[in-house]
Design a protein around this nucleic acid. Sequence first.
DNA 1: CGCGGAGTTGAAGCGTTTCAAACGGGGTGG
DNA 2: CCACCCCGTTTGAAACGCTTCAACTCCGCG
Lengths: 288, 288
Amino acid sequence: MTAHDIRFADHASHADGATRRNPLIPLPDQGSLGELLSLLGQPDDPAPAASADLPLSVWRLAQDGVLLREGSAGQTLYVVRSGSLKCQKTLEDGYEQVLALALAGDLLGFESLHGARRPCSAIALEDCTVYALPTTELRDLAQRAPALDAALRAGLSRQLARATDTTEIMAAVSSDARLARFLLRLSTRMADVGRSPRRLRLRLGRRDIASLLGVAHETVSRSFSTLADAGLLRVDNREVELLDLDALRARARITRGLHVDALPAAARASGPAARSSWWSALDTPAAA
Amino acid sequence: MTAHDIRFADHASHADGATRRNPLIPLPDQGSLGELLSLLGQPDDPAPAASADLPLSVWRLAQDGVLLREGSAGQTLYVVRSGSLKCQKTLEDGYEQVLALALAGDLLGFESLHGARRPCSAIALEDCTVYALPTTELRDLAQRAPALDAALRAGLSRQLARATDTTEIMAAVSSDARLARFLLRLSTRMADVGRSPRRLRLRLGRRDIASLLGVAHETVSRSFSTLADAGLLRVDNREVELLDLDALRARARITRGLHVDALPAAARASGPAARSSWWSALDTPAAA
DNA sequence: CGCGGAGTTGAAGCGTTTCAAACGGGGTGG
DNA sequence: CCACCCCGTTTGAAACGCTTCAACTCCGCG
């Protein structure tokens, strides 16, 4: 975001933590179809099929390791099994924009399966394990395990729906609201993965968070202080404890000043989904 | 973005232009597998298969018609054949965030095929035609036309890669740069669809553009004026002519002031893709 | 003809960006 | 083992640019 936040990709920043240990090593006999399906949110398939002979390979990625490299012609689809990664892209002006956070169950790398180059990088924020599904095996895999095929499709849908998260965060005008939205989203996602929704261990630095929020990193620092002073959370460097989720949600709604309070309550409560209208038929033309 | 930009979904704004004529009507015998494939960017399939008996239905959507309704349980995948739509989502605070522009060849509605509700709406900015592929027919279709299956997969990849466009636009700090990025992206996409990359007919109002850029609509107006005064473009309401693409690209790179000029040229020219490094092996673990 | 929406432009307030400095932790090397 | 340095983080202060409120024009439409 800011001029001095610009870090070039050539910058040899990754030569420190990963040259020692091999950043990506195989974990034989660690994966199972059942686990993969549950990761993808499949409601416990009753018939787990012949998972034994399926070539499901699990890899271990060390912190700071690069799973996806922007611009490469990778042909492997990954499913995060544990840990977390950040997806980022180097923009034309050299700024590295953080696009998303990938947690367990997230699909990575689908964008370049059809021949295109990887549009963004994925870097491990901690030690991770991932399922690797090469395109070459994908078709065969889908045929032998239809449940996996369906689960991947569903995961893809989720991924596509989640792609707008960053935009929604940056739609808020005040940086406090943006930070609140980010923390709340992270909170619910952590809960989904089975971790605490209140005690967050941010694996992202202030700069990366700033990139996600679309503000300067100093502003992120200030917003943390503001929310902490207001008693909404407790912050100790990258350890964050959310103290008042409701108040946080209120902050997240605020665009500027307190206009939201003036909104008719019905509009907020019911939302667009609850509307009944002849228009709804439009979304299902096949049924007409 | 701004407080008075808030338009509630309940707001009966769509009751004006579309009650007269039926907003969504079938166009029998208008689609062909070949056309659909070329729309999806498939390089002219040599064996067009038996396209005649494939149930490819084309629909016509009138301007302001709602193709996708946020919150509904639509189970149809659409491929835009002609025209343009806007995708938008009503945020918790009632603000309608425009997320993307859909042009010919774009896939719409995949996000809710696995049972979820539609995460965003899609509204026609002009009269459109779309291919409708209901989930019920999708599997059969894919089996009978493997080329279509591959094309849809590729289209999905593109869609996923394109999902970050809005974020990249909003990554710029200055509103001029944001507008320049938006116009340039639109320009190249129009060129892809076979339309003029210089003469743009914006089907989006200032408010919607402002939403996409993440600024107030007055700011969009001012940025148009600024770029026009600089001679980079000519603007007449929603008609825009890009006069100096290179200068526009320079604007799009600028974050604030002129720091970019100070960047080492190599970093801009080569980019992340041109790097050679032992790290590249990481993106293809299966080959290791 | 008048109303309402869209777009433009002006002026003021204010929040963010920017530049700067200081603090703290973690690592390295003396 | 301690000094040192680097880097991430925090906080301060000033300036810029955006948001906001407001007025005005243009245009389509009832």
